[in-house]
């Protein structure tokens, strides 16, 4: 049984290795660049970048569930909000330090993600999207309803995280760097997950649910677990949001449907199902409107909409997916060129 092979098998392997090496270098450079931002930019810009890092967290979680697993969730804002209120209430009213609230601010959304997933993910189809959309619409009302505890639309203020004195960092720099560390940690954990058994199972489910099940993937259980993990990442983002911004309210856009849609848009723009897509997407959705509104506030909204349409039409795999394809073509061409040149040289007497 033979099949036609258009290219020798060696070239793709070499190209793949080159690509991996270039990829690691790029990531390393990006991390270094991200680490020096707070020392170069003015505080208000640093705060804007801090929000990029924080918005990336629910987006990374969503990417696991929606990008890899194909389950559409419109409720990341709820889990983000849950994490934020756990931190805000415990810090403001009970005297906890922000980092002491971390386990709870992650565990509560995780449990909520699992509990919501149990009934709605056992059924195939759009039920989960609808259930999460309803929750997202409802969440600000719940905050209002319990305004003695939550501060309602007046908001709840809390002391923001302060750098320990020996570090010699300003408050905005510290908040940025803490957020960066947590984001890198979450990225690393989810990348590990995406590369192995669970990542394969998620992609398999998205591609062909029946075939995935007959390979032994417990589709419902996997979706429920991943729904919990996705919510936990959002909860962590919420915790950091409260601890760096110092105020949360029922009108904070990130806790409403607007936030849920921003997280979804960030995932799509950056590249669903890619490891770095959510970061790029969060950078675009958080930073671009700010940059554009320096030019013209009206323009910002319009340009954002146009960008979304262009990306969806031209780059179905998002900015990162597009860049990866481009890089793959380039390295393939370079290695092919080398192979031909070498072959030609060897042919010479």
């Amino acid at each position: 049984m033979t099949m036609p092979l258009s290219a020798p098998a060696v070239a793709p392997v070499v190209a793949a290795r080159t690509r991996v090496r270039i990829g690691y270098l790029l990531v390393l450079a990006a991390i270094l660049a991200a680490a020096v931002v707070p020392f170069l930019a003015p505080p208000y810009v640093v705060q804007n970048y801090t929000r990029v890092l924080i918005v990336a967290l629910p987006t990374v979680g969503l990417n696991l569930l929606t990008g890899y697993g194909g389950v559409i969730s419109l409720g990341q804002s709820v889990f983000f909000g849950l994490g934020a209120y756990v931190t805000a209430i415990l810090v403001a009213d009970h005297g906890w330090a922000w980092w002491q609230t971390l386990p709870l601010a992650v565990a509560l959304p995780l449990a909520a993600g699992v509990l919501i997933g149990i009934p709605s993910l056992r059924i195939r189809g759009v039920y989960f999207a609808i259930v999460t959309l309803v929750l997202a619409a409802w969440f600000p009302n719940v905050i209002q309803r319990f305004n003695e505890t939550t501060g309602g639309n007046q908001g709840k203020s809390l002391t923001v995280m302060q750098a320990p004195g020996w570090l010699g960092l300003a408050q905005d720099q510290y908040g940025y760097l803490v957020s960066l560390c947590f984001l890198l940690l979450v990225l690393l954990l989810l990348r590990n997950l995406a590369r192995g058994r669970t990542g394969r199972a998620l992609t398999a489910m998205r591609d062909n649910e029946v075939a995935a099940a007959t390979q032994g993937v417990d589709v419902a259980r996997t979706k429920i677990y991943v729904s919990g993990l996705s919510a936990a990442a959002a909860g962590l983002g919420g915790c950091l949001y409260a601890a760096t911004q110092g105020i949360v309210s029922s009108e904070t856009a990130y806790f409403t449907v607007v936030g849920a849609i921003e997280f979804l848009a960030a995932m799509v723009i950056g590249g669903a199902g890619t490891v770095l897509g959510p970061i790029v997407g969060a950078l675009v959705t958080e930073r671009l409107p700010v940059l554009l509104s320096d030019v013209d506030p009206q323009l910002a909204v319009a340009a954002y909409g146009v960008l979304l349409i262009v990306v969806v039409r031209v780059m179905p795999a998002g900015l990162v997916g597009f860049a990866t394809t481009l890089a793959r073509r380039l390295t393939a061409r370079v290695t092919q060129h080398h192979t031909t040149v070498n072959a030609r040289n060897e042919g010479k007497p």
Binding site: A201, A204, A211, T214, Q215, G216, Y225
Partner: peptide, 30 residues
Amino acid sequence: GLFPSLSVRANAMAGAHTRLHARLLPEMLA
């Protein structure tokens, strides 16, 4: 009933899903 987003090798590896012992936590912590 293949998984189009996966390579040939990853498709084959997906077949061994039930035989692997690594679950979420060990996977995440590599």
